[in-house]
Computed example of a mutant assay.
Amino acid sequence: MTESETALKVGQIVLITQGRDAGQYAVIIKILDERFVVLADGDKRKYDRPKKKNIHHLEFFDYVSPEVQNSMIETGRVTNGKLRFVLTKFVEGLVTDLKKGELN
């Protein structure tokens, strides 16, 4: 296992690299064990019907959403709207960073 896989956190943003949902972003809402996590995106994969995914089929980002993390700690769940908001904010920031990198 690599260092990034051992530091899994609830609220962490991931990119799905394998399977039907490949190329989509999601948020870790639960860590099942050292091999599997549960993902939701608030849109296609709602909180009530999350996707169990092998960590080898994911690309991890260093960003952990404090909104999702705090909501999971306080209430044990997170709203689908909050998941959509966090992912939209992250993807827009990522696109902005890539454009800045291309211009320099």
Rank of each mutant, 00 (worst) to 15 (best):
T2V: 11
E3R: 13
E3L: 12
L8T: 06
K9S: 09
G11T: 01
I13G: 00
I13K: 08
L15V: 02
T17H: 04
T17Y: 00
Q18H: 12
Q18C: 05
G19W: 09
G19R: 07
R20Q: 13
A22G: 08
G23V: 06
Q24A: 12
Q24R: 14
Q24L: 12
Q24V: 03
A26D: 03
A26K: 04
K30W: 03
I31D: 07
I31C: 09
L32T: 11
L32P: 00
L32G: 03
L32E: 15
E34G: 14
R35C: 04
F36D: 04
V38Q: 14
L39D: 02
D41H: 01
G42H: 00
D43I: 02
K44V: 03
R45I: 01
Y47A: 05
Y47F: 15
D48Y: 08
P50S: 14
K51E: 11
K51W: 11
K52I: 12
K52N: 14
N54I: 09
N54M: 13
I55V: 14
H56P: 00
F60I: 07
F61C: 08
D62F: 10
D62C: 06
Y63Q: 08
Y63H: 12
S65Y: 04
P66Y: 07
P66Q: 15
P66I: 12
E67R: 14
N70H: 13
S71C: 10
S71D: 11
S71G: 10
S71F: 06
I73V: 15
E74H: 13
T75G: 01
G76S: 11
V78K: 03
T79I: 02
G81N: 14
K82M: 12
K82V: 08
L83W: 02
R84L: 07
F85R: 11
V86T: 12
V86Q: 00
L87D: 00
L87Q: 05
K89V: 03
K89R: 12
F90R: 01
F90G: 01
F90H: 10
V91C: 01
G93C: 01
G93A: 05
V95Q: 11
L98I: 04
L98F: 09
L98A: 13
K99N: 09
K99G: 00
K99D: 04
K100Q: 08
L103C: 07
